[in-house]
Design a protein around this nucleic acid. Structure first.
Lengths: 336, 336
DNA sequence: AGTTGGCACTAACTGATTGAGAGTGCCAAT
DNA sequence: ATTGGCACTCTCAATCAGTTAGTGCCAACT
């Protein structure tokens, strides 16, 4: 049984490296297995019965099935350490990032570059982060700009028009009370925290204050809270033959925010690998997805990962994704 | 001569529609030309001498060269009006956009959708816009957040650490003097405007003020002032056969900000079409690019456009790009 | 002088055939 | 349980002939 798994491992590694169905002969030759091709053939027949490998046609070698990759990945224990130049690349890439936009943009490019796959990075989720500051700026007598700064460094701003003018003193009162109430609190808790907030103000100002609050809540809750950036799509074309001859559906799926968000799912700390048909989305069933959470405080506030062909180097890719996640987490904590 | 151009037009239109080299026979049949195939053949030979069309092999029909498309486009006078559903789509797409990020993101998706090509939209250039407001917020005693709001609705923010604490009064003095000096001015003029700004302050505060100013200038000038978003890359795959069998180099080019920025170039009002080899970038020589400027004030502060195969429906595409640019300009003026 | 029909010519595409190669499954021997 | 041998299957590449689309040119026509 152990030997059989060893053979599966050899098939996966060979196939990932060569892109070609691997036969019993080359398997016996290339790897140091001290058994004959005939024995390997017997084992391969068993592996095929178990649904771990198939042969594309009668007289070809075997290739792993999605299930085969799954077993391979689950038995993967030795985490490949990154090479020195890769480590250096990661170190260099983020230094000098000026704001969150910049950090996210650099991270996604970095990830695409080290893995040679398509990289996706989710912006730190607003829901899971806390209020660092809320600022109210008067642009014109009846036009305000609201700015909400989260502890992840993320900044949302919105402009709103008031029904009537607001005095400078009301404005600064609003500013300080708003911050007193919200600062340090989770964004998700704002709706309850600010429920009857306008009661703090004199009657004439209440309608304007209510207006401001509704926009604040909108910023905190709105759909576009979940943003995803993507990079390295050209890597898809490099692996084109892997995708049933067409990258089109994959590219299409990558353009739908909804699909990407479902892919990234809830931010969790441990690494997650989904292989081929383990995916719900039809268009992505020729791909594998590796994701992991990241965040400044140690527990994950967002997810990042890569998408590639099922025939990918899982060991290297997984350690790269993990390393980048750890690095950007540390960076967010220290710098922004 | 006029007839010859008419034939070129017919060839281009037929080829764009069918994707197949067009021969003299179908040309005579499909279009209402009242001349025989033989005559057409003579004219086609002349067109080939002029370098406007070629035949991929001896016994195939003709296809337009880049130069042929160029002549076709230059003679294009009748601007195709958009269809009613397209107009409606444009109208609906932007309404409800909450901030500049949102406007740009919606615009690029809209453009990709109506043209069925890859769309690129440049953020309104900071250099060309004016200061609406500068805000200085104290996050911690020695940590400030600077926010710069441009009249295009674009918001830049930066965090900086001070060497020493800054009093609340100095802070508000800084805030008001900064705005008095900068408001309404072009960002490009800030470096000279703020040259000796710290002279306005008492000695102990000067070092901090200088620090703030340098960050303000950084925000106004920094390299990442030029941002580009892109959408509809899956449309590339749809037209895959057009790109010498490989979309890879094109995808690669689209990932390089530098290339995109050169593509969008200086924002100018009139529409620009670059066809195939008219492009400097090698990777894009199988594509054509249509760009035009847009901006809230009537004169262009940024550029948007599409990238597609040289074999594209120029008439429709050009009018779509124009319509979207006009629409987003109007929207920026009114709403943000 | 421009236009047209006729015709020989060319090159790609299609489909059938063939031989070579790779890899298997199974069986009998070890 | 492992191995060598061997017949079998299927793909792949090359070849070949027939078909087809489209041209270029020439002589005849308006």
């Amino acid at each position: 049984m152990e030997r059989r798994m060893e053979i599966l491992r050899a098939i996966v590694e060979d196939y990932v490296a060569t892109h070609e169905p691997v036969g019993s002969k080359v398997l016996a030759a290339r790897h140091g297995l001290s058994i004959s091709p005939a024995t390997i053939r017997n084992e391969m027949a068993a592996l095929e019965d178990e649904g771990l490998i198939i042969q594309p046609h009668t007289s070809a070698g075997r290739i792993p099935t999605d299930l085969g990759y799954r077993v391979f990945v689950d038995r993967l224990s030795t985490v490949k350490p990154l090479s020195a130049p890769e480590k250096r690349a990661i170190d260099k890439f983020l230094e000098g990032a000026v704001d969150l936009d910049d950090v996210v943009a650099r991270t996604v490019r970095l990830l695409a570059q080290v893995t040679h796959q398509v990289a996706i990075v989710q912006y730190p989720s607003l829901k899971r982060s806390s209020v660092r500051h809320i600022e109210v700026i008067s642009l014109m007598p009846t036009r305000l700009m609201l700015i909400l700064i989260a502890d992840t460094g993320r900044v949302e701003q919105r402009i709103l028009d008031l029904a009537s003018e607001m005095s400078e003193s009301t404005l600064s009162e609003l500013r300080s009370k708003l911050n007193a109430q919200a600062q340090g609190k989770k964004l998700a808790s704002l709706p309850t925290l600010l429920e009857a907030f306008e009661g703090n103000f004199a009657q004439p100002a209440q309608v304007n204050v209510r207006n401001v609050i509704s926009v604040v809540l909108e910023m905190a809750i709105e759909r576009n809270e979940e943003r995803v950036v993507i990079s390295g799509t050209s890597n898809l074309a490099r692996h084109a033959p892997d995708f049933n001859e067409s990258v089109h559906p994959v590219l299409e799926a990558l353009e739908e925010q909804v699909v990407l968000l479902r892919l990234l799912g809830e931010a969790v700390d441990e690494m997650k690998v989904r292989i081929g048909h383990e995916q719900e989305d039809k268009k992505l069933q020729s791909t594998s997805v590796i994701t992991t959470g990241y965040g400044p405080t140690g527990d994950a506030v967002a997810t990042l990962g890569i998408i590639g062909p099922t025939r990918m180097d899982y060991a290297t890719s997984m350690s790269a994704v993990g390393a980048v996640a750890r690095y950007v987490s540390r960076f967010l904590q220290e710098e922004i």
